[in-house]
Design a protein around this nucleic acid. Structure first.
Lengths: 216, 216
DNA sequence: AATAAAAGTGAGTACTCACTCACTATCGGG
DNA sequence: CCCGATAGTGAGTGAGTACTCACTTTTATT
């Protein structure tokens, strides 16, 4: 079986060939945007941190906002693509017999990615309220597709009688709150606490399954 | 029985006597900070929106940041005070016989407040990553106290055998994720969807109770 | 080695920023 | 009715701000 993550990587050809300096600029921008926010970060500051003249930034990115977008957009696609491409097939092919299998696979699968991209995700979450284009782009390219897929998946397991017959959007909200709540506390709020990840994930998934169990 | 909210109001004497212009400044600042963020909002803009000279802002607030703090701090205290003052007593006095009673009371109690203060809470959440003083102030004045109280409350219901014997912090995380997840989707992400609030709260609380039920 | 395209530079531009200050207007107590 | 205090003003200040452009250096292709 081929490496599916690699497949996705190539399919979108994200962050293609970059010069050394361009990589420095991106790294510096990510650092500063995450720490101080887009608006409070000056292009001068980014240039200094990247060891580059200010003009160099604008050679590659027409505006400061374009720089922001070039950081956030590829991450967004990489984060969501598996849900659209892989997960649904695995569900429909009965690779995940139970909803629990599916949830555990999803957490496992996304954990590494999240861990490696905390800063970019932080930027994305912090900036989304202030940049309508960002929200639109998200909804257009991934948001709506992801929701459609998730609805199909939930419906599938509801029909199999594995989860309670609440409105699908409510099930998505409860599942999302639980999983995102875990990731946010784990990597956002208390990244330095000593976590027993295996135990926490286990408690979280069991909590979710018990909570969503059908009324007997 | 006296009105406890009023008691809290008076106890802290929050947002005391303000001139008409000062109220305008606050309202304008809240509007702009929530919409564009603290950093992207200029004092000139606030002054114009408030119908006031720019100097007037600095007569009342030494710096722009002081203006931000004067908006966010009282809200923070008002939001958390009930947990510290009222809720714990009600629990220990057996006013809430079950954990479910407690959770429902807490949601009911905080809903109105949240609804009336969405913008300020939005500002608080958006700005906390960029202002260490804000985080410190929060932890010092309310955060730590609230967590201590919550731990006592959870422990109390665990001893009564009403909820599962997971680590207390895990229970707090799961409960918090579920409730905050509801409020965030309800008032933050999809405030304009047509919500059947009663049904949603009911599903949410039932989900939480089933998820936290002790192993039989 | 010649050459054109691409990458990199940094001083300069027009503009905005938070904040100041000398001044005026309003108000409440004796 | 006066007076001190508080509230309100808006032009002014120096330090940024994102972005430009004429120029130099590096790279790839023949």
């Amino acid at each position: 079986m081929i490496n599916e993550d690699q497949m996705i990587e190539e399919m979108f050809n994200l962050d293609g060939d970059l010069t050394e300096r361009q990589k420095n600029i991106l790294a510096a921008a990510i650092e500063s945007f995450a720490e101080k926010g887009y608006s409070a970060t000056s292009t001068k500051e980014i240039a200094q941190k990247a060891g580059v003249a200010e003009g160099t930034i604008f050679r590659h990115y027409k505006t400061k906002k374009e720089l922001l977008m070039s950081i956030v957009t590829p991450m967004m696609i990489k984060l969501m693509a598996p849900i659209i491409i892989k997960d649904i097939n695995k569900v429909l092919n009965h690779d995940h017999e139970t909803f629990e299998d599916f949830v555990r696979a999803m957490i496992d699968n996304r954990r590494k990615f999240l861990k490696n991209n905390v800063k970019i995700i932080k930027i994305f979450i912090q900036e989304i309220p202030f940049h309508p284009e960002l929200k639109e782009q998200f909804m257009e390219h991934v948001g709506s597709k992801v929701f459609t897929r998730l609805r199909q998946i939930i419906e599938h397991y509801q029909e199999k009688g594995q989860i309670i017959n609440l409105p699908i959007d409510t099930v998505i909200r409860l599942t999302g709150s639980t999983i995102i709540g875990y990731f946010v506390t784990r990597y956002g709020i208390l990244p330095d606490a000593d976590w027993d990840d295996e135990a926490e994930v286990d408690s979280t998934v069991k909590f979710l399954m018990k909570g969503l169990a059908p009324e007997q």
